[in-house]
Nucleic acid binder design. Structure first.
Length: 280
DNA sequence: CCAAGGCCTGAATG
DNA sequence: ACATTCAGGCCTT
């Protein structure tokens, strides 16, 4: 029953966007905020809480999006190789904490830290004789001590995590507003959280706030731009400054179009696989 | 506005 | 063994 536009679950989960997912037999189980999602071998997703999450972004016209981003050979190759790769719509708070923790770290460690956070601060839920911990609510993390958070292995990011949680609790960060407003406004807001810079902000916006023009520029994407797009985007310096990041993003939107976030996901996946990088 | 240095941590590398 | 490097950046100087 696999058609050209069906979702490749394994590749989508293993593309650096989510961390709290594990496969048991043919089923995937994942933590998404206060919810647990199960995806069976047929790619059918079910929410334990029966919530109406649009986790697979079924409202996106993926056909149009793929057509739109396929503007050069490299993207076309990545799309062809990883056809079923999709961007998920995550719980924003979990996504925010995840990517604050991700900075200057690696996937295995991010996953381990997040698991410790859920065990320490989250609620235990049993389904099908299996135990899970859902992601803690903002108040819970905001009220925790720095040392308690540090015990989860997040190091100096502990204070960022706590402050971010407090800002969400106090509605200084309002995810519903951030979903509605435009890219620049959302970015300005979310970058006011300590520990969130350009790259982390773009991840949060792309993976949980419906900003498909977000194009997270991490070391891998910079490597990709230098390798395949040296003519289109010249990168002179080693560290990307604020101004350079903004200019680069403008050029990127120009080149890949309004859904460039999807292009990023395909390119990132392709390059990481080329280098045999491990996922979950 | 830009460049350089430091930062928790633990797995990988030498 | 044991030291050093590196990993999906950010913040301060």
């Amino acid at each position: 029953m696999k058609n050209k536009f069906s979702i490749d679950i394994d590749n989508s989960i293993n593309s650096g966007q989510v961390f709290l997912w594990e496969k048991d037999g043919a089923n995937w189980y994942g933590i998404n905020g206060q919810d647990i999602l199960k995806i069976n071998k047929n790619g059918v997703i079910k929410s334990v809480r029966n919530s109406k999450t649009d986790f697979f972004r079924n409202n996106d016209n993926i056909q149009e999006i793929i057509k739109s981003i396929s503007r050069d050979k490299i993207v076309k190759k990545a799309v062809k190789e990883y056809e079923g790769l999709r961007i998920f719509k995550q719980d924003p708070f979990q996504c925010m904490i995840s990517f604050i923790i991700s900075s200057n770290s690696n996937i295995q460690k991010i996953k381990s830290s997040l698991e410790k956070i859920t065990r320490k601060f989250g609620t235990k839920v049993k389904i099908e004789d299996k135990e899970f911990f859902v992601f803690p609510k903002p108040e819970k993390i905001g009220n925790a001590s720095i040392n308690e958070i540090k015990a989860c292995g997040v190091g100096y990011r502990a204070s960022f995590v706590k402050e971010a949680a407090k800002m969400v609790t106090l509605k200084k960060i309002d995810f519903e507003y951030l979903k509605k407003c435009d890219y620049n406004e959302a970015k300005k807001n979310i970058c006011s959280v300590p520990g969130i810079g350009n790259k982390v902000a773009d991840c949060i916006m792309l993976f949980s706030l419906n900003k498909l023009e977000a194009f997270p520029l991490d070391t891998w994407m910079i490597k990709i731009l230098e390798k395949y797009y040296s003519k289109e985007f010249k990168i002179e310096t080693k560290t990307i400054t604020q101004k350079q990041y903004e200019l680069l993003h403008e050029k990127i939107v120009n080149h890949f179009g309004p859904y460039c976030g999807y292009a990023q996901q395909f390119l990132f996946k392709m390059e990481r696989e080329n280098y045999n990088k491990k996922w979950l």
